[in-house]
Design a protein around this nucleic acid. Structure first.
Length: 107
RNA sequence: GAAGCGAGCCAGACGAUCGCGGGGUGCUUUGCACCAUGAGGAAAGUCCGGGCUCCACAGGGCAGAAAGCCGGCUAACGGCCGGGCGGGGUAACCCGACGGAAAGCGCCACAGAAAAGAAGACUCCCACUGCCCGCCUUGGCGGGUAAGAGAAAAGCUGAAACGGUGGUGUAAGAGACCACCAGCAUCCUGGCAACAGGGUGGCUUGGCAAGCCCCUUUUGGAGCAAACGCAAAUAGGAGCGCUAUGGUGUGGCCCGCACUGCGCUCGGGUUGCGCGCUUGAGGCAUGCGGUAACGCAUGUCCUAGAUAAAUGAUCGUUCAUGACAGAACCCGGCUUACAGGCUCGCUUCGCAA
RNA sequence: GGAGGGGUGGCAGAGCGGUUGAAUGCGGCGGUCUCGAAAACCGUUUGGCCCGUCUCGGGUCACGAGGGUUCGAAUCCCUCCCCCUCCG
């Protein structure tokens, strides 16, 4: 699972990507025609809670992304945690994420 | 049995499948398979103390900061242990920023006569004396008032008033004198010391230093984005100013020491990889020394090293249904958060023998 | 990793040991003016709880939270919580 690492890549996806929202997860997707394979990133804002809370959120997002087969070929995707992500099961989040990716036309 | 006090420990467990981090082995080089391993008692807050690295050495003085009953432990500490004193609790036990107010400055609102040495200033007390009134045996007694040598007891306040209580004494009084208590000075005894006990002396000097301050002790500055190595890139560039009892290192200042151009503006490059990076003032067990903290000796164990940052998901079994919470160079503490559970020792009360 | 500043009525913002429930401004409410409104001017409410009860008066707790020093703390000191800024 290749992840977005540098600040420049994050800036690119933030400025040019499209956003989709749900109660359990929010995503920003940038379709990427030039590069061979897409990347993925997991974000939990500091205002959500302490380090344990944010780590839990990111693990749930990571599991949901894996079950959706997410490091997709054609797009970079950033997943944002919400207040509800912490208590949700990965299955619920995966269902929500699948719906959002369908809207974004990512396989 | 109930209530409580102190010390210590645990922080869901087990199995199966899928997945993640670094490590090892094999295939043989993309990667895949297998093996074991992978967060805490606080990893937290960053409040102290060190190690380590760099600043030439880490020297002296001033300033600043910190500590503050005594002795010990320790690499060091603002930590810990033991003791003293003071306070709380029936007790086990717990708590304490606990040096100095006759070195000096400052503050003490309101009330009060007076608030820090103000004068014996005011009220009050009072011998002798004058005047007035009353009683009565031409003089005395009683009361009032004025002036006063004397005296510091009383003065309604306040958080706090030139020690307190009782007595002797006197016209009235006073450490003027006596007893006890508190405080001060000094001596003796015990103790390494803080301090405790006792004697003697003169008779007394408010509180606040978490106000400034004084005394004693400690303290150079930065921090793993430190520092070192490799690779890549670029312009060992341009302009202006200041100069050698100058400038920089030095980020509080001065001396000393070292180096010899430096400062500002404009322009350019750079957050890649390796190393530091986990074996350490390390843990556990036993023995010895010490009241204890701790030290010494022997044996044994190796137990995360990520870098947009690794511990999760699904299913099953079981119980007290799982709190607070995630390593980021590493240790020793402190402080704060925390569902509960277990072990040991002790205190008080009740009941039974 | 390190350094500094702040938290006070509904909001902004003084006060920094002594009658401060708390200046001042914006608010809210009532009045004057107006046909009505705005502006201006005047007054008032200014917080919780408790008590009496003549709807006015009294007591107490409140300056982020909890302790301490002091006769007395928003102010001085310690611990914790939250917010903001700066440096590398």
């Amino acid at each position: 699972m290749e992840t977005i690492k540098s600040r420049k890549e994050f800036e690119k996806v933030f400025s040019r990507g499209r956003r989709y929202g749900h109660r359990l997860v929010r995503v920003t997707v940038l379709r990427n025609d030039n590069e061979a394979h897409g990347k993925v990133a997991f974000v939990a804002a500091k205002r959500l809670g302490n380090a344990v809370f944010r780590n839990r959120c990111k693990r749930v997002l990571r599991e949901a992304a894996r079950s959706c087969g997410l490091p997709a070929q054609e797009a970079d995707v950033i997943l944002f945690a919400t207040h509800a992500t912490h208590n949700a099961s990965p299955r619920e989040v995966a269902a929500a994420l699948g719906g959002l990716l369908g809207k974004a036309c990512v396989a």
